[in-house]
Design a protein around this nucleic acid. Structure first.
Lengths: 97, 97
DNA sequence: TTGAAATATGAACAAACATTCATATAATAA
DNA sequence: TTATTATATGAATGTTTGTTCATATTTCAA
């Protein structure tokens, strides 16, 4: 007897899934999964343009999937919490079958 | 040391998340979560137009998130497998905090 | 065979979005 | 200050997509 979540919860779920459902952002999330990394490192490892990565990092941050801290001129991004990990794991398992 | 999934896997993950990341489709998935239901029942319980529900059911089916069987004029939809449940659970938990 | 009920489909449209390009801002070093 | 490195931002654009409206198809009963 699972209930349908409230409109508010459903909307929040929709937003989270929307943010996660982009190739570039998925790749970013994996790149910073184990340790926080600077934007320039993320740009290298993701293999996308600096502008695109910066735009998408902003999307991820606005949705609270990542947090940041600054060191000098560099900005380090990391996953916000463990839910993001769980989400990626479940989706990856589904995809790998 | 989590590896970045292959391009193919990432694309599949992107597609799954995309399909899940819509308000109407999320609601449909919850409506048929416990038992399979006919389109007309889904339309009622979701509270969207028949056309919209039908279109979105098609999207869900194409992505293999749901399966169908026919009884007379009615078509019954149900969740394809348990991954869908797990995915919704993880996302819902994230949203509820 | 007509009619009604259930479901699917196609066109049309506005809104959302990913990406690129050019440029701005911030921090530091020389 | 000036130059350089790191990051962010804004405009522009082409594509995708959610929704509606109208209509088609299927199934079965009368």
């Amino acid at each position: 007897m699972s209930e349908i979540p409230s409109e508010k919860i459903l909307t929040m779920m929709e937003e989270l899934l929307n943010v996660a459902s982009d190739y570039t952002r998925l790749k970013i999330l994996y790149v910073i999964m184990d340790e926080d990394k600077s934007v320039s490192t993320i740009v290298e490892e993701v293999g996308a343009s600096q502008s695109l990565v910066s735009h998408q990092l902003k999307v991820l941050k606005k949705a609270n999937l990542v947090t940041t801290h600054k060191e000098g001129t560099k900005v380090y991004y990391k996953l916000a919490d463990d839910h993001v990990n769980s989400l990626l794991k479940v989706v990856q398992e589904h995809a790998e079958e």
